[in-house]
């Protein structure tokens, strides 16, 4: 199920823009520099989440350490490669976890933006510009794929859960949604 869903989502993204071997090589080539940013990245990431009222509500008071470890594990694994089926399926699973934790896609997109800016600033400061641009491009491509997997798995797992709970199959849900969207568009025009 997870493998099938992951493959299906990846197939929606044109090959030509998908995270590729050059992107993977750029990250792995600068692994040690990028890992040196880990502490600052993890702290900054959760400082923002804990400082904002809406995202702070996601967490219990005593779980920051555990959440930081999750991000560290992801960061280290990402910089080590390989970007194989197992890695992408793991990102798909995150979408499922996010439903359970009430982490919505707006929160994820916002934090990806921060992460890209953080890494972009540091690599531009410390790496030769040609190498920095390769890393920035890799992070952008990675963000696009991971965001696609998380957000799509979020939606499709939500649909699956509704089907299991209420007997509304995916095609029927799309049908119900489509009918209402037609009406909303007609009113908006």
């Amino acid at each position: 199920m997870k493998a099938e869903l992951t493959e299906n989502i990846l197939n929606q993204i044109p090959d030509s823009v998908r995270f590729n071997q050059d992107d993977a090589a750029a990250l792995v080539a600068h692994q040690s520099f990028l890992l040196s940013l880990e502490d600052e990245l993890v702290k900054g990431f959760y400082d923002h989440l804990y400082a904002h009222e809406t995202t702070r509500k996601i967490f219990t008071d005593d779980e920051r350490e555990a959440r930081e470890k999750t991000l560290r594990d992801w960061y280290q694994r990402t910089l080590s490669g390989p970007f194989d089926t197992h890695y992408w399926e793991w990102q798909t699973l995150v979408g499922l976890v996010h439903i359970k934790r009430n982490v919505n896609n707006a929160m994820v997109a916002g934090m990806w933006g921060w992460l890209q800016t953080f890494l972009g600033q540091h690599v531009l400061e410390k790496l030769p510009s040609e190498e920095a641009l390769k890393v920035i491009k890799a992070v952008h491509a990675l963000q696009a794929v991971v965001m696609a997997l998380i957000s799509e798995s979020y939606q499709r797992n939500m649909f699956t859960a509704v089907d299991k709970a209420a007997g509304l199959n995916e095609a029927l849900l799309y049908r119900l949604v489509s009918i209402e969207i037609d009406e909303m568009l007609a009113q908006a025009r």
């Binding site: 209420a166 007997g167 509304l168 199959n169 029927l172 049908r175 119900l176 009918i179």
Partner: peptide
Amino acid sequence: AVSAAASGLG
């Protein structure tokens, strides 16, 4: 659509 939904829920 809602008849199919009702049957699924039922």
